[in-house]
Amino acid sequence: MSALARLAASNGLLRTLRCCRVGQLRAISTSDNKRDTTGASQPACEPAPKTTETNWISYGFSTKDKEEDRTYLHATFFFGITITFVFGGFVLAYRPDELGRNWAQREAFLELRRRERLGLPLVDQNYIPADKINLPSDEELGDTEIII
């Protein structure tokens, strides 16, 4: 085994093993003894040339360069998520009350305090005077079902 390691180091077999796939290197027997075998001194394959990745699918930021495409993808998503959630949440939390919900609630509490102080019922039964309400007559209603 040590003889094989010395032979591999002297003939550059280690470089050959690194550049070739495992199944492409053939063992050649040069002796009658079955245990004594050596590898071929010439590589059975050429080193694989460095090529660009052919199965690369672009994310749409760059169709020419994979690194540029990935960089723009990560930057876009990082800043997009940051702006959307962080700054968007800040804007939603501190925006003014456009619909006046807070104002209506404050006015309702003030009106309840005023009515309690004056001894009036909290909600008046005749909030709208009955003479101002125009209800349809029985003839106008006809067979319309009335659900109360």
Rank of each mutant, 00 (worst) to 15 (best):
S2I: 10
L4T: 07
L4Y: 08
A5L: 12
R6F: 13
L7Y: 12
A8D: 02
S10Y: 11
N11K: 09
G12S: 06
G12Q: 01
R15Y: 04
T16Y: 00
R18T: 02
C19L: 02
C20Q: 03
V22L: 03
R26P: 03
S29G: 08
T30M: 09
D32G: 13
K34L: 15
R35Y: 12
D36S: 07
T37H: 06
T37V: 12
T38N: 01
T38C: 07
A40P: 02
A40V: 07
P43G: 14
C45L: 03
P47D: 05
A48I: 12
A48Q: 13
K50A: 09
T52D: 15
T52N: 08
T52H: 09
N55H: 13
N55V: 00
W56F: 14
S58A: 14
Y59E: 04
S62E: 04
T63K: 09
T63Y: 15
K64H: 15
E67N: 14
R70V: 13
R70M: 09
A75R: 12
F78I: 07
T82F: 08
I83M: 06
T84P: 00
G88M: 05
G88E: 05
G89W: 01
V91M: 09
Y94R: 08
R95Q: 12
D97L: 01
G100V: 05
W103C: 04
W103L: 11
W103K: 12
L118F: 05
L118P: 00
G119I: 03
G119S: 07
P121Q: 07
L122E: 10
D124A: 13
D124M: 13
N126A: 08
Y127W: 14
P129I: 10
A130T: 12
A130V: 10
K132M: 11
I133K: 08
P136A: 07
S137C: 06
E139R: 10
E140P: 01
